[in-house]
Design a protein around this nucleic acid. Structure first.
Lengths: 297, 297
DNA sequence: TGTAATGATACGTACAGACTATCAATCAAC
DNA sequence: GTTGATTGATAGTCTGTACGTATCATTACA
């Protein structure tokens, strides 16, 4: 059986007239009769009552008519959707993000979703190291992450820079003052940090920052993900140095202070697998480029 | 596009190897490559990433793969069901019945349903006259009805004979006695009868029965359907003469008495449209024939 | 560097589906 | 009854295309 049989069958069932159906199909009547006969033979069921003057569907034919129309409709929708996925108008896009959905990331996601309503964005929170791996293995299509980035297999570009701030429990003695803090004041404080294996760039930058201020952070606690780190700070377990992106959502239990004399910032990058990136991923990357700040020279 | 394309595509998507897929399809590899290329061209989407050493589905291909399998499954089920409807193993069967589903009718329906679980029996209560019309117009496939039957267009045979009984309100003076009643005792009683136009055979037989007993029934009320008639009797509106089939289900408000010296009975017939009876209707008729009483000579 | 594996390409062929012509059956008009 | 129109089926021919064989290009691996 071929789709031709179904197409012809539907035409005859709709017109209940071989001649007119043939005309609609742009073929002559004899081959139409033949194909219908073939279909009946193959299915093993008479589909039409035919006298020389009238054509009517049998009960079996009526059933097949309904089914055939549904099948052709499904096929039509399937091919259209397939084409859309190819062009990147539709599909699923797995997106990784490190800690919090900063307003910068949300703006990009929102804008893309608005223009591509058929696209399903699936968000995965994972560390920068995990994103490198997931992008390489195509478990995610897009990553919002911090260095290091495996430039061999991944394409990437810089999006935003977020300065560092110190996160203190509100109950902490240093939390009273709103002025920028000197990092040397943090000497001996218990630090909460992500594991270096998960966020090497972030980790090293903070260490360097502290070293420059003449202190060596006393890491008492490791925690995965900014939200977890901040929860621990809120609980009074220790202090941490986080990006202003994480500090966007204020919490009562946490007090943020800028760092005096340091304009260090952590870079947020967008990355994708540069080999066989899905069309959707490519679209996303293109759309995201618009959000690069100061791109006008 | 033809089903061939989908079949070939599914084979390649399952094997992710053109050579092996071709072998399974019993064709050689080159035409398989061609057909897949055609499919991609027609849909307007790349379906496989092909290097010379590996074949992988694109996101678009993965979507089409799922859809194509579903479509092939639907098609398979549709053709099987169509064949079943043709042979009478499945389908819908509209059955008409006059008044009540007597135990005789129920036995036939039950037996048929047991042997043909894929068949949906749709019951329609309608008078014998309506059934004649509905059978001719194919609104129903099978009728359980009383004469007259239009032998021109309908095939039919006799099933059961149900003797007549008198139905009295329990409060009626004549309802005390359990012995057979003489019809002459009913002189002057208000009769409830179906309209003659709907149940001519039944109507005329009762009139003849009464006439033989020397009375002319005083028809005060007409009602469509035995259940309606019996409800009116129960309400004390009048009396009626009904078949023992209707009397099968006893009600407290109604008292039935046999009729003395009359072995008249109303015949229940099974009828169908003898032109292009649906295969299912034919099966039903054949199955019902087993229930003709005294068929052994 | 040579060999095996794999999908794409080139080209000839056979068959199936399409066309034209015609037939058979039915219905309607007179 | 007879004739003409309508309609689906059949017969015979032709053509497009799906398939097969042979071969190539590329890649992986020994």
């Amino acid at each position: 059986m071929e789709l031709r049989h179904l197409r012809y069958f539907i035409a005859v069932a709709e017109h209940l007239h071989f001649g007119r159906a043939a005309k609609e199909l742009n073929i002559s009547q004899p081959p139409l009769s033949q194909q219908i006969a073939q279909l009946e033979e193959e299915i093993g069921a008479q589909l039409f009552y035919r006298t020389n003057r009238s054509v009517r569907l049998t009960p079996a034919g009526e059933h097949l008519f309904r089914e055939a129309k549904a099948i052709m409709g499904n096929l039509e929708r399937a091919t259209t959707q397939t084409r859309k996925i190819h062009t990147g108008e539709a599909g699923k896009l797995a997106v990784g993000y490190t800690g919090m959905l900063s307003s910068g990331i949300i703006r990009i996601l929102r804008s893309f979703k608005d223009k591509h309503s058929d696209v399903e964005l699936i968000l995965h929170r994972m560390s920068s190291a995990m994103q490198n791996e997931a992008l390489a293995e195509r478990r995610i299509d897009i990553g919002f992450l911090c260095p290091p980035i495996d430039g061999e297999t991944l394409g990437f570009f810089h999006l935003y820079d977020y300065p560092f701030v110190v996160a203190l429990p509100s109950s902490h003695p240093l939390a009273a003052d709103t002025s920028p803090i000197r990092l040397s004041e943090l000497k001996g404080e218990p630090f909460i940090m992500p594991p270096r294996g998960e966020e090497a760039g972030y980790f090293d930058q903070i260490i360097a920052l502290c070293n420059r201020a003449g202190i060596s952070p006393d890491i008492r606690q490791e925690a995965e993900g900014v939200t977890t780190i901040l929860s621990l700070v809120a609980a009074g377990i220790g202090i941490s140095i986080v990006s202003t992106a994480a500090a966007e959502t204020q919490r009562e239990e946490i007090f943020y202070r800028e760092i005096k004399g340091a304009d260090d910032a952590i870079g947020l990058y967008l990355a994708w697998n540069r080999q066989d990136a899905s069309p959707l991923a490519e679209r996303f990357v293109q759309a995201a480029k618009v959000f690069i700040p100061n791109q006008d020279k």
